[in-house]
Every structure is written in structure tokens, then in C-alpha cells.
Amino acid sequence: MNEVEWYAVTPPCSHDELLAAVRVYARDLVAHHDLSVNVSDLEWSVSTRAKRRAGLLRYRDDTPLEVRLAWRLFQNQGWHAVASTVRHELAHAHLVTEHADPTHGHRFQRLSDRLDTTTHCERFTDPDWWVVCADCENRLPRYRESRLVRNPGQYACGRCGGPLTVHAPE
């Protein structure tokens, strides 16, 4: 059995049940990988609004304060995706504490490889709109009704300069 499985929870479960498993998993990761993060000092929360961001580390003055995880990620992709996001956010917390570095730079790349996590998350919810280039068919997902979504004719494709149109999800 994969060690990530030891901590796994599955839907349906509550936010509190998910966060309890996440905290235990995070403590063991920190100890196993010798990360300079105190899991107990972090606030752990679930976002029911997040559609594009799987996780978020809030920090102030090089001190990690909170890890927020996307509930939709758990619902749509399950425990393994959440566990990967926890590893990702703990890498940020460690690098913020040790190097005042919240970026996805070289240090993050090395640490994310060691923690077997990714630099960026895959899409886990469908966008509300697609902005599509009529010339090169470049497709941009949009989750909010931005100016671009409301007025695509005022913008051009960043790749080829072609005209843009907006489509509802297929």
C-alpha cells in the first residue's frame, strides 16, 4: 500500500474530517522530510469557492499562517490530489520560513521533486466560459465574467493577434 493511502479519506465526508486527515498527513511529511514547518501553528481551512487554485499558503513576515485547500479539488479528484497539494503548500511554507522565498523558482523545483508534487495544479473544475481565437483556435478558460468575457471584440489573441469569441462550456 502506498503511504499516501494510509491517510486517505473519501467523499462523502465533512470539511473537518478532511482537515483532520490532512493535519496528520502534514505532520508526518514534515517529520519525514525534515521541513521547518510547525503544522500545529498553521491554520488549516477549506475553500468552497476556489475553482482554479487547489491550495494557498497565507504568510506574513516570513511566517506561514494558513493553508487553504479547495473543496472542489477533493470532490472532483479525491485524496491523492489533495495530498499532492498539501505537499506543494508545505514546500512553500518551508521555503518561506528558511529563505523568505514564496516563488516556484529553483529551490521550489528541487523541493517539489523531493516531495513528489507538482509546481502547478491541473484544472479540477470546468470553466464557466472559453475564450477562443478564431484564427489559431487557442482556448483560454475563464471562471469569472471578466471584461474579456463580456467584450471579447475589444481584445486580440495573445498568441497570433486573431479575433476572440466566447463560448459556454461544451
Results as ranks from 00 to 15, higher is better:
residue 154 Q to M: 05
residue 70 A to L: 10
residue 25 Y to N: 01
residue 92 H to F: 02
residue 106 H to N: 12
residue 93 A to W: 00
residue 124 F to L: 08
residue 169 P to D: 08
residue 49 R to S: 13
residue 87 R to N: 09
residue 32 H to D: 13
residue 86 V to C: 10
residue 161 G to S: 05
residue 26 A to S: 09
residue 12 P to H: 04
residue 115 L to D: 06
residue 170 E to F: 10
residue 129 W to F: 10
residue 60 R to H: 14
residue 11 P to W: 01
residue 143 Y to G: 02
residue 61 D to L: 14
residue 139 R to V: 07
residue 29 L to D: 08
residue 8 A to V: 06
residue 28 D to M: 05
residue 70 A to W: 10
residue 116 D to H: 15
residue 85 T to E: 05
residue 27 R to S: 11
residue 124 F to C: 11
residue 69 L to M: 04
residue 15 H to W: 13
residue 80 H to I: 09
residue 28 D to G: 05
residue 123 R to Q: 14
residue 160 C to H: 00
residue 118 T to W: 12
residue 114 R to Y: 02
residue 19 L to I: 12
residue 154 Q to I: 02
residue 135 D to Q: 03
residue 93 A to T: 01
residue 132 V to R: 04
residue 74 F to V: 03
residue 52 R to H: 09
residue 164 L to R: 00
residue 162 G to D: 07
residue 128 D to R: 14
residue 128 D to Y: 11
residue 70 A to Y: 11
residue 18 L to M: 15
residue 27 R to N: 12
residue 170 E to Y: 10
residue 29 L to H: 06
residue 132 V to I: 10
residue 42 L to D: 03
residue 4 V to T: 11
residue 130 W to L: 07
residue 146 S to E: 01
residue 85 T to I: 05
residue 110 R to I: 07
residue 153 G to N: 11
residue 168 A to N: 13
residue 28 D to H: 15
residue 16 D to N: 15
residue 65 L to F: 05
residue 15 H to D: 15
residue 50 A to E: 08
residue 143 Y to F: 11
residue 96 V to H: 01
residue 167 H to D: 12
residue 78 G to C: 04
residue 50 A to D: 11
residue 62 D to H: 13
residue 46 V to S: 14
residue 150 R to A: 11
residue 135 D to R: 01
residue 80 H to Q: 15
residue 155 Y to V: 01
residue 140 L to F: 13
residue 111 L to T: 01
residue 33 H to R: 03
residue 67 V to W: 02
residue 101 D to P: 12
residue 99 H to T: 08
residue 64 P to N: 00
residue 129 W to L: 00
residue 58 R to A: 12
residue 4 V to P: 03
residue 12 P to G: 09
residue 87 R to D: 09
residue 170 E to W: 08
residue 138 N to T: 15
residue 44 W to N: 06
residue 52 R to L: 13
residue 45 S to H: 09
residue 44 W to H: 06
residue 17 E to H: 10
residue 71 W to H: 14
residue 36 S to Q: 12
residue 77 Q to I: 02
residue 61 D to K: 15
residue 92 H to D: 00
residue 66 E to D: 10
residue 137 E to W: 08
residue 5 E to W: 05
residue 92 H to K: 00
residue 110 R to H: 11
